[in-house]
């Protein structure tokens, strides 16, 4: 396997590749910002999740599926054009497994954050807010338990849409 992360199975232009490299980190950063500020300003887990997926989708289109699997997830991938199912070396778990774990985690996190409320004898999915004063740099910080739930939403959206993207893209 070659360690060269350069695209091998796509025919996109150098302009597209360069701008993707610049744009994707910005997209991901914006997504995280949207997730964190969602409680007080426009944003939230769902939008942040979709935006993250858009960033990954760009990489998929511009650099191809193999780049994501090899360069980002460090996996050996045999080209899918080979006939399937002849021996074990081919049959590593499909990439969608990682994404599957993401949305499973997200779902568990969201449900778990609801169960925490039940431990305090509140209805399922009750949310609370904790205010902390005097932190260095930030000063006054507001911790909303809803953030945990929102993070769960984020992970489910990211995992779910990436699964669909990967499976459909692999076709």
């Amino acid at each position: 396997m070659s360690a060269d992360p350069r695209p091998t199975d796509s025919d996109t232009t150098i302009i597209a590749q360069t701008s993707t490299r610049v744009v994707v980190p910005i997209i991901l950063l914006v997504a995280i910002a949207l997730l964190l500020q969602g409680h007080n300003l426009p944003g939230g887990g769902f939008i942040a999740g979709v935006l993250t997926v858009t960033g990954f989708a760009l990489i998929y289109i511009i650099y191809g599926l193999r780049y994501v699997e090899q360069g980002l997830l460090h996996r050996t991938v045999v080209p899918r054009s080979l006939p399937a199912g002849d021996d074990e070396s081919q049959a590593g778990p499909p990439i969608s497994k990682e994404f599957g774990e993401i949305f499973t985690t997200g779902l568990a996190l969201a449900a778990g954050s609801g169960l925490v409320a039940m431990a305090f004898d509140l209805p399922f999915l009750s949310q609370g807010v904790l205010f902390v004063e005097g932190l260095p740099l930030y000063g006054h910080v507001e911790f909303a338990s809803a953030l945990a739930f929102d993070l769960g939403v984020y992970l489910v959206v990211v995992g779910g849409l990436l699964t669909i993207l990967a499976v459909v893209g692999a076709e």
């Binding site: 409680h39 007080n40 300003l41 909303a144 809803a146």
Partner: peptide, 8 residues
């Protein structure tokens, strides 16, 4: 709710 964004 403790949040400025009612929708969220």
């Amino acid at each position: 709710g403790g949040g400025g964004n009612i929708v969220n």
